[in-house]
């Protein structure tokens, strides 16, 4: 196992925003983390190399990367991991690139060995589809379109030949046609370099198209986790079902969505018992007793819902 996150908790003052997350990523595997804004998914991604802002603190848990706990590393070792082993790509390529340095200079920064850097950079640019700027050493980020900037970001991320890349909404700011190209690029690099990927997004359609395994987060915890195919064919949590029913499409024409009512709870005011209870269509009184644990739906597919059995085989009894 390349990365194992065990019972990760991240607090912000007295408020926990990640309330115990377990997540494993294998070599060469793409794990998708789906959740709506404010569910804690970005914090999970940033926690992996302790990139969270100072005001937030990891209160407990382990993050085992190649069998070493990242949370126990000294700053020197941590820097080493950040620069060589784990890289990030964020949503806004333009604000992630430094506007006063050229693309060449910024990719060079990320290279492991600086000898012979020009040919290395050329190779990276080629691999991310930026053949156009090979040899053009004075190109600055603002001269590129959003899609090309994101390609450059991905180039920087893979320049150090990392084993894990965390992609946090990497295509959200881009147009659909560009989005598609970037996703294809990510898949291509993943296969070529045997990369492991944590792909964080709010967009189910994108995650479904790219991930091998999927975790769905709600109110700071993973509520369902499993192989993509299993989740798509047999969602094991009412929240996942609600999200899937909310995907707009041509097939769904002019019909009302079977939408999830209400809104996500605030971390400062979480409901008792199951955190999804107030919005759930299948709730029963027993859901209020305690927050459910992750239980097997089938092998390699778990869900945090006590009504799994009732939902299985597509039969859902209302209260």
């Amino acid at each position: 196992m390349l990365l194992q996150i065990k019972n990760l908790k991240v607090g912000y003052g007295n408020i926990e925003v990640v309330r115990g997350v377990d997540l494993n990523i294998d070599k060469g595997e793409c794990v998708g983390l789906i959740g709506e804004s404010g569910c804690g998914k970005t914090t999970v991604g940033l926690s992996i190399t302790k990139l969270i802002p100072e005001r937030r603190g990891i209160t407990s848990g382990e993050i085992l990367f190649e069998d070493r706990d990242i949370l126990k590393l000294n700053p020197e070792e941590l820097r080493n991991i950040r620069s060589k082993k784990i890289s990030y790509v964020f949503q806004e390529p333009f604000s992630s690139l430094n506007p006063v340095f050229t693309i060449y200079e910024q990719i060079k920064e990320s290279l492991e060995e600086k000898d012979n850097s020009d040919s290395q950079i050329a190779e990276i640019l080629k691999s991310v589809g930026l053949e156009k700027i090979i040899g053009r050493k004075n190109v600055y980020p603002h001269e590129l379109s959003g899609g090309m900037q994101q390609r450059a970001m991905i180039g920087m991320a893979v320049a150090s030949k990392p084993s894990l890349v965390v992609l946090d909404e990497p295509t959200t700011a881009l147009d659909v046609t560009i989005q598609r190209q970037i996703l294809e690029l990510i898949m291509e690099l993943k296969n070529k370099m045997n990369l492991s990927i944590l792909f964080i997004s709010h967009d189910l359609r994108i995650v479904f198209s790219i991930a091998d395994k999927i975790g769905i987060m709600y109110a700071g915890k993973i509520v369902e986790y499993g192989l993509k195919e299993k989740i798509i064919s047999n969602p094991g949590h009412p929240y996942t079902m609600g999200l899937m029913d909310s995907i707009p499409s041509f097939e769904h024409r002019k019909k009302l969505f079977n939408a999830i009512g209400g809104k996500a709870p605030l971390f400062s005011d979480l409901p008792i018992g199951c955190k999804f209870y107030p919005r759930c269509k299948f709730r029963i009184d027993k859901c209020l007793e305690k927050e459910p644990e992750l239980e097997n739906v089938s092998s390699g597919h778990v869900s945090r819902c006590i009504r799994i059995k009732d939902m299985h085989y597509g039969v859902i009894k209302n209260k």
Partner: peptide, 29 residues
């Protein structure tokens, strides 16, 4: 967010039918 998106689309569809509104609906999606 997608769950909220579905709620708002429901509201817009419902209003359009009930009040016989005309929409110019702009989207990239």
């Amino acid at each position: 967010d997608i769950s909220i998106q579905a709620q708002i689309l429901n509201l817009l569809i419902d209003l359009q039918k009930r009040k016989n509104l005309t929409y110019l609906f702009i989207s990239h999606d």
